[in-house]
């Protein structure tokens, strides 16, 4: 199985994540798309760790997961606060900061 296979999969998942962020208005789904992009990156990391026979890539993935967990905790807390304020998770309603 060529390495390119995993990298291609990673690329497709990353683009799907981007599309999710760009197209969906539900803040929670946008968040999930972010997680998807994280995973795409992680996949690339692990693939290269395998390619170069280095542990560093895997360790990095571990750290990414830990930071992602932290980010999700804060992000979801924000989401709850926003929902309390606006009564909706529609990201387009948060547009008062504009020129």
């Amino acid at each position: 199985m060529p390495t390119s296979f995993f990298l291609a999969l990673s690329a497709i998942m990353f683009v799907l994540g981007i599309l999710g962020v760009l197209l969906r208005r539900n803040a929670l789904v946008i968040f999930m798309s972010l997680e998807l992009m994280f995973n795409a990156a992680n996949l690339a990391f692990v693939t290269f760790a395998n390619q170069y026979q280095l542990l560093t890539g895997q360790i990095f993935v571990f750290f990414i997961m830990a930071v992602a967990a932290a980010e999700v905790a804060v992000g979801l807390a924000l989401m709850v606060a926003i929902f309390r304020n606006k009564g909706s998770v529609d990201i387009d309603q948060l547009n008062s900061l504009k020129g």
Partner: peptide, 23 residues
């Protein structure tokens, strides 16, 4: 398959488990 069993289990427990449950 990529030879990362530790990461695979972490993925299942932390991501698919903890984080998505939080979601």
């Amino acid at each position: 398959a990529l030879g990362a069993p530790f990461i695979a289990f972490t993925q299942v427990t932390v991501y698919a488990g903890a984080i998505m449950i939080l979601f």
